[in-house]
C-alpha cells in the first residue's frame, strides 16, 4: 500500500505541474488547450539540455523556458491578435507534438546521463521523512516532487493572499472593469500565460528527465488534456490541485497493481480517461456559483470593443 501511494505521488507530479500551469493561464482569463504541446516541448528541451550538459538544473530551466516560448506563440495570437483561443491552443498542441517528435529523433533510444539521474536521487527530508506512514509516502522523493508541493502552496498564497491574486479575479471575471480600474490587463495575461507555459514545460521534463529518463516519442500520452480537466475538477484551487493530481496519478498506475485480477491491461488503461470524463460530468452537474469557471474565460478582451 505504501509503495503504491509513493508511486502515486511520482505519477501525479507531471499532472500537478501541468494543472498548476493551466490554472495560472485560466486565472488570467485565457483557456490554453496547448498544454499537451507545451509539455512535449518541455519534455524534449529538458531531455536535450540534460543529455548535452549533464546538468539536472539546466534541464529543468531549459524545459521551463521552452514551455514559456511555446506559450508565447499562444499569448501573441490570443492576446495581441485576439485569435480564437480554442483553435490557437489546438494549433500549439499540434506544433508541440511535431517539434518534440522532430527534435526527438536525435535522442531515439538514448538514456539520460547518470549524472542527471543522480541529481534527482531521492532525498529524505529530515524529521518529516521520519513521520509514521506519511513520511515514507510524501517526504522521501526527488527535488522535483518537493518543488511541486511548494509551487502549489505558493500559488495558493499568490491567488488568495496577494493584491495580484485579487487583480486576477477582476481580470478573469470582468476584464473591462479591471482595465477601467487601472490594471494592465494584457500585461497580466502575458505574464500568467508565459509562466503557466513554463510550468507545463517542467511537467513534460519530469517525465523525460526524471520519471522515464529515456526518450520516447509522444511521452506525455494525453496527460496535458487530463490536466485541463483537472483544473475544472479542482475548481481553480491550487491546494486542491495537489489532491486531484495525485489521485489521477494513482489512477494511471493502478493497472500495474491490478494485473493479478486478470483484467486486460488495455482496458485498465482506459481508467484515467474514463474517470476524467466522469469528473467532467460531475463537475458540470454540481454547478454552483463557487465552482463556476471565471466569467471572462475564453472570451478575448479588446479594450476598443468596450
Amino acid at each position: 500500500m505504501t509503495s503504491f501511494l509513493f508511486a502515486m505521488i511520482i505519477a501525479g507530479t507531471p499532472l500537478l505541474f501541468a494543472t498548476l500551469g493551466e490554472m495560472l493561464t485560466e486565472k488570467s482569463g485565457n483557456l490554453n488547450l496547448g498544454v499537451e504541446g507545451m509539455m512535449l516541448i518541455g519534455a524534449v528541451a529538458g531531455f536535450g539540455m540534460g543529455f548535452y550538459t549533464g546538468n539536472g538544473l539546466l534541464a529543468i530551466v531549459g524545459a521551463a523556458i521552452a514551455g514559456a516560448l511555446g506559450a508565447l506563440i499562444y499569448a501573441f495570437l490570443t492576446v495581441s491578435l485576439r485569435a480564437n483561443q480554442v483553435v490557437s491552443g489546438l494549433a500549439l498542441t499540434i506544433f508541440g507534438t511535431g517539434i518534440s517528435s522532430f527534435v526527438g529523433t536525435l535522442f531515439i533510444g538514448q538514456k539520460m546521463p547518470d549524472r542527471v539521474i543522480t541529481s534527482f536521487a531521492r532525498v529524505k527530508i529530515p524529521l518529516l521523512g521520519d513521520l509514521p506512514f506519511i513520511g515514507p509516502i510524501l517526504f522521501r522523493h526527488d527535488y522535483f516532487v518537493y518543488i511541486g508541493y511548494l509551487m502549489a502552496i505558493c500559488l495558493g498564497v499568490y491567488f488568495y493572499k496577494t493584491r495580484y491574486g485579487l487583480n486576477l479575479i477582476a481580470i478573469s471575471e470582468n476584464p473591462s472593469a479591471a482595465d477601467a480600474s487601472g490594471i494592465h490587463v494584457n500585461l497580466y495575461k502575458y505574464v500568467h500565460i508565459l509562466f503557466g507555459g513554463a510550468l507545463c514545460g517542467m511537467a513534460g521534463a519530469y517525465l523525460s528527465v526524471v520519471d522515464v529518463p529515456q526518450w520516447q516519442d509522444n511521452i506525455t500520452a494525453g496527460r496535458g488534456w487530463i490536466a485541463i480537466a483537472l483544473v475544472i475538477f479542482v475548481k481553480w484551487n491550487p491546494i486542491m490541485a495537489l489532491f486531484g493530481a495525485y489521485l489521477f496519478g494513482g489512477l494511471s498506475i493502478i493497472g500495474f497493481r491490478l494485473q493479478h485480477l486478470s483484467i486486460s491491461q488495455n482496458l485498465l488503461d482506459v481508467l484515467p480517461y474514463a474517470v476524467t470524463i466522469i469528473v467532467l460530468i460531475l463537475s458540470s452537474i454540481r454547478k454552483s456559483k463557487e465552482d463556476a469557471p471565471p466569467k471572462g474565460l475564453g472570451v478575448p478582451y479588446f479594450r476598443e470593443d468596450r
Binding site: I228, S264, N266, D269, V270, A274, T276, L280, S284
Partner: peptide, 27 residues
C-alpha cells in the same frame, strides 16, 4: 444537458476508442 465541457470530453473519447480497439486487437 449539463453544459459539460465538450472539448476535453470529445478528446478523452478518442483515447477510450483507441484503447477499446487496442483491447480487441490484442484480445
Amino acid at each position: 444537458q449539463f453544459g459539460t465541457n465538450e472539448t476535453i470530453f470529445t478528446l478523452m473519447m478518442n483515447y477510450v476508442a483507441l484503447k477499446w480497439v487496442t483491447y480487441l486487437q490484442y484480445g
